[in-house]
Amino acid sequence: MIRGLWDRETIALMLLAAMLPMGASWLIAGGLEAAGRLLFFLVVAGIWHVLWMLARAQPPSFAGALTALAIAMLAPEDLGLFALLLGTSFGVVMAELAFGGWGRNVLNPATIALAFLGFSYPAAPWPELPVQLGWAAWPAAAIGVVFGVTSLRLLAGAALGFAAAMLAGLDLTAVWTAALVALMLLVCDPVASAATGLGRWLNGLLYALLVALFAVFWDTAAPVQAAVSAALLTSLAAPLLDEFAIALWLVRRKRLG
């Protein structure tokens, strides 16, 4: 009889609210050019959502705006309109809409779009993120956790991983901003990340360790490229981490008969 409000669109809106600090500081730093870029990706993602609504009766989602924001912030620069159009369409259609829309997808569409662009146009330079963006990731995390749309376990796992890397003497100063922004925009996506308690710890930990690994051993990678690659590998591993967590949980329940 009484109904709560935590359906898919509420969560998408809450995630958008959490991303506002990062979006705002990125727009302030990037000026008109950034705004135009964001508008372009919003329009492309929006058109695909509307097309799938008309063709497949699939309700459009505010999560499309999240995807657009992430691609706008992290996509390689100096790419032609066609390349960006192709990359965004690939991510939005193949990683999200073809699975039935946000909530049913396996991988984050923005991660896929960025990886597609990175692999297809390796010569294009990755963006240099302004340093205030890294700081804006902190309120983003706080808002997400308070509203329950970002997993505290995942963030704690990532913090643990970064702390371990720093204790081991690795120098992460160069990748810091990119790592935090990609963590909030790509890795913390509730749909594409691990869904069990332990799985989330491992998910965050794995991301942090991969970022640290790339920072040390992958000399030619730009910070954003390393972070996006780490996000891609992590989200590919998320179902495995969940399986592992569930198997462990079942073993612990054996004693109950």
């Binding site: 935590w6 898919r8 998408a12 829309g101 909530g103 049913r104 509730p190 749909v191 869904a195």
Partner: peptide
């Protein structure tokens, strides 16, 4: 409708 994980 798909269920999206959240704390609640």
């Amino acid at each position: 409708m798909p269920l999206v994980p959240n704390a609640a």
